[in-house]
Design a protein around this nucleic acid. Structure first.
Ligand code: NAD
Ligand code: NAD
Lengths: 206, 206
DNA sequence: ATGAACTTGTTAATTGATTAACAAAAAATA
DNA sequence: TATTTTTTGTTAATCAATTAACAAGTTCAT
């Protein structure tokens, strides 16, 4: 299938989670406007996304939830689960791990985490072990891990990034404060709540 | 000044943090392409944003950092610090609080947090107290808090949201999993790392 | 059976964001 | 002094995302 627009992919991920919950209500069908209102979107946008997804609904009942979920699964889970890891199992890393683990279905799997703190190393959370950071290159190669979530606190992040890329990481989700350098071809998403706060503050006052 | 585009406001917030760091290197000037590369942006985009901001640079040296920072401050800090609070001081709430507190300058202030767990209530982090959740309406009104960051874990979020809006909250930053209902006129930003993970996974494989 | 009331699916129009293009300024160099 | 280099500032062009418009299918009520 043709490559989906960035924003459509983003929303499709949200549709899946909402639908998974909706399904437990044993509602077999959903209308575009219901799905839209659950996610504060425009119903037209929902229908357009689903059209791009290549799935279709029913003139009277809307979209069949199981069919929709299956369609999303096929699109987002290619060819099968992507492997990801968390670097830095402090408060944030631990919270993220539990949160991600709460997904009913997940196209991204986390089977290992890393830290340098001896108190964290060799512990497990939800059955997922925390390894010594020195073992990261070895384990990333072995398990073909592609995404690294950066939740550590350190001054010397650049050296770590280079090692991770060398081991096979193709994408970073960065929560650390400082700007980082990433070569072309490596994906990067940065998230900082301070930007969200300042943006909202601006909106409230303007 | 005319209302800035959403994306421009977002980037301006990032410029500020990068510039604040850059300033400590005692570099008095910065070129648009340097600022751009620190944030993985296009230099034209940076210049356009700064033009919209109403500030100007120098044909030979680029932009004066102190002047730029002042200009950003004037735009984002209107009329003065917005008050925000964190609801739920678990792992995530605590991590966010410390992270936000690490900002050198901040147009959004957090002076109180809330929880229902007696072990959290009446503790302080970085001098910021955690109050009993039952006191939220009173304190939100008193301190004119406008933004609530939702980092709690509960089944019954809707009732809490309604109480918070009633107390004067105008914007929510929601980290909780389930979909929430928000009346028109109230700002909402939802963030879920699972969407970022799935989006990145899709990009890596397509 | 006819029309009203819903819905989906799709194209067209609009709006918003990014990037290209280039004039103008300033300094460095030949 | 003329030319090259480098950078800002701005408009125009392009690209991406959203929304409007509406045909077409389905059921229900009359
Ligand atoms: N972007 C955001 O919105 C946001 C929000 C909260 C926190 N943060 C940032 O996330 C980071 C973590 O926050 P936290 O509250 O979990 O901090 P924390 O101190 O609780 O955890 C940091 C962890 O990183 C580990 N660590 C340090 N150096 C390491 C290394 N070289 N390799 C592997 N692990 C290493 C530490 O042992 C610790 O366990 C901080 O940089 C913080 O500023 C960002
Ligand atoms: N969106 C994301 O990317 C993301 C990432 C990590 C965690 N989360 C979510 O954030 C939430 C918190 O995660 P955590 O790891 O900090 O969990 P946690 O269990 O450590 O903390 C939850 C806190 O909320 C408090 N709480 C519960 N009910 C409350 C109420 N009615 N009022 C006030 N406080 C209340 C608890 O006492 C506890 O301190 C969870 O819902 C989790 O799924 C989201």
């Amino acid at each position: 299938m043709a490559k989906l627009p960035k924003k459509t992919v983003e929303r499709i991920s949200q549709y899946r989670r909402v639908l998974a919950k909706y399904q437990t209500l044993s509602e077999p069908f959903i209308f575009s406007h219901d799905l839209a209102s659950l996610l504060h979107l425009n119903p037209v946008q929902v229908r357009r996304d689903l059209m791009l997804l290549g799935t279709s609904g029913n003139y009277r009942n809307g979209y069949k939830v199981t069919k929709l979920l299956q369609s999303i699964d096929e699109t987002l889970t290619i060819p099968k689960s992507t492997q990801a890891t968390i670097i830095g199992m402090g408060r944030l890393g631990e919270s993220l791990l539990k949160h991600i683990g709460s997904s009913p279905v997940c196209p991204v799997m986390i089977n290992s985490t890393f830290d340098i703190n001896p108190k964290k190393i060799n512990t497990t959370i939800r059955g997922i072990p925390c390894y010594d950071m020195t073992r990261a290159p070895e384990i990333i190669k072995e398990q073909k891990i592609k995404i690294a979530i950066l939740t550590l606190y350190t001054e010397d992040i650049q050296a770590i990034i280079d090692i991770l890329i060398d081991a096979g990481i193709e994408g970073f989700i960065n929560y650390m404060a400082g700007p980082i350098k990433i070569p072309k071809g490596i994906y990067l998403k940065e998230y900082d709540i301070r930007t969200t706060l300042e943006e909202m503050s601006y909106n409230i006052h303007n």
